[in-house]
Design a binder for these strands. Sequence first.
DNA 1: GACAATCCTGAACACGTGTGCATTCTCATG
DNA 2: CATGAGAATGCACACGTGTTCAGGATTGTC
Lengths: 338, 338
Amino acid sequence: MQHVSIKDIARAAKVSHPTVSRALSNSPLVKGETAKRIRQIAASLGYRPSAIARSLATKRTKTIGVVVTSIADPFIADVISGVEEAANDHGYSVFLANSNANPDREVRVVHSFHERRVDGILVTASRVGALYVPLLSQLKVPIVLINNQHPDETDEFIYSVTIDNIKASTEVMGHLIGLGHKRIAYIGDRGGFQSDTERLAGYRQALAVAEYPFLPELVVHGDGKPGGGEQAMESLLALANPPTAVFCYNDMSALGALRALHSHGIKIPEELSLVGFDDLAIASYTFPLLTTVSQPKQQMGRMAMEIMIKLLSRIDSKTNIKVEGELIVRESTAPPKF
Amino acid sequence: MQHVSIKDIARAAKVSHPTVSRALSNSPLVKGETAKRIRQIAASLGYRPSAIARSLATKRTKTIGVVVTSIADPFIADVISGVEEAANDHGYSVFLANSNANPDREVRVVHSFHERRVDGILVTASRVGALYVPLLSQLKVPIVLINNQHPDETDEFIYSVTIDNIKASTEVMGHLIGLGHKRIAYIGDRGGFQSDTERLAGYRQALAVAEYPFLPELVVHGDGKPGGGEQAMESLLALANPPTAVFCYNDMSALGALRALHSHGIKIPEELSLVGFDDLAIASYTFPLLTTVSQPKQQMGRMAMEIMIKLLSRIDSKTNIKVEGELIVRESTAPPKF
DNA sequence: GACAATCCTGAACACGTGTGCATTCTCATG
DNA sequence: CATGAGAATGCACACGTGTTCAGGATTGTC
């Protein structure tokens, strides 16, 4: 006998198994004395209820499917750590699935979540294809998106947690403009992600407020990774009149930009100011330390999971939460040279 | 009716539900023609078998519990991405649990995995407490450890994948000695982890082979994180006769060391050579690029999961796998100045 | 002491799938 | 045409838990 069941306990306690079931779930229907005895026997036998059988009976698995494009992405990993923590706190377990932005894998994940009868699905959407969420929503299960990249999700099952990109972006620009910079460049992402679009919007908005002209040649595109950031920075440095400050879509891009600057022997922040976005752990260990926007990554994960749990408990909850980023000024920004 | 069951299909196909069950599992017992018809109906109804019910009947959940100290650790995140990929390829799903090296959480994880009747458990042991594995092994389920930190696990259920630290470490030292370094320091971890002990052993072994003296003042201890690496490097720089090369327990420590060196204005690699370990993504974006040892992180995760799956399929498998690291020479090492 | 009201308990069934065994059907063979 | 063998299918039960309902035990009241 591999596992002890409530029937085993029932036999030992000379009661029926429904009584055991009730006693262990603290039902008021069972006499206090009996319940206590049953619980003691259960403990002494090392009883652990079968979540499987319980799920079958109750039709709730207390299980959440979590899709990420890649858990190796440090931003996502931080978010997931918050997700898992909140889930654990409420007795939920998470199924982790990498999609790798691969359509085949995506449909397999959907099938897997479907068959396992997850109660809900969490998606860190930073690179998830546009067609994916509709696919997931076929499961008729609540979905919470974190930093989703498609603004038009109007499905009734869909909730979200996102950072206020425009606000954070204008704050970054305010910082640079306040230092005296006038030629400020933006290194964006490729592919028109929601977050890129919004950060660019904040960039333009801040320029407009300061009554600085918007110069298209100062907006270049990377790929959200160091390689793209490096190339983008190279193209900025090749301009006849290069910028004195550069605002990068994310820290990864900034890392690449930093590399390009180092290889040109350009001193930061004396000759050029650089700002990232995300406040990855690395940003505290670059040289110089990177000024960036901190997203409450873990907390966002936690919030997303808490929205989910409220939904599953039929508690009304906000459908869309916007959190604020925080500008972290470190060593990579300073007033322009002249 | 939320989900379609085999009974629904049976009704539609005018057969009994066991026949449907057999048809869908490609049993030779059911007539080819009937099976085909049943499969068509199943597909048209969008049938997805309930893994829950199946698990209850077969006593196998096709589920693996994965414990990590923190998924936010980039090393671990890489390993897990390999784990998840291999699991997915074989129809297994993974429950992810962070323990945060917190004993309370650890026992909750054990209970959770027990109740969910996972088929096996994977542990990335880099920071897991010594008492934890025995706790897990109570579940009488196979356990595979990745880079475990306690050499004495002799339980019959326990298997492992580890990197050959001694070999990698002597290779690093060979590189530095080959460049002409004689005063080589080692920045270790705290707390006597297996990997730290082994890397230090490789360090000493290489010194012995080169017939260089082992100087205790050149071995200092960090904490495996940048903060500790920075302090450790400071203490090395405070020596009357500082080293010309420093081998760090891991890249995180090296990042801290790098920071200390920058703040002292010490040029790398001209004035001092620095080597890390792990080849985290960051190592390709530090300044200068970090020479380090690459562990096949994803592959190690994949191998661990494949051992697990073989075990569960009653296929004989190696119980302990040692993989080799690869020395990646980048820009942070060079011959000593004089 | 009789009766009702309340409190506990157990029997029966449900959840969806898999499997051993009995049964029916089909077809070839004597 | 009867018989037997083998193929195809259905019946019944199991997995472990939760829940409805009926009935038994207990208590209180007149």
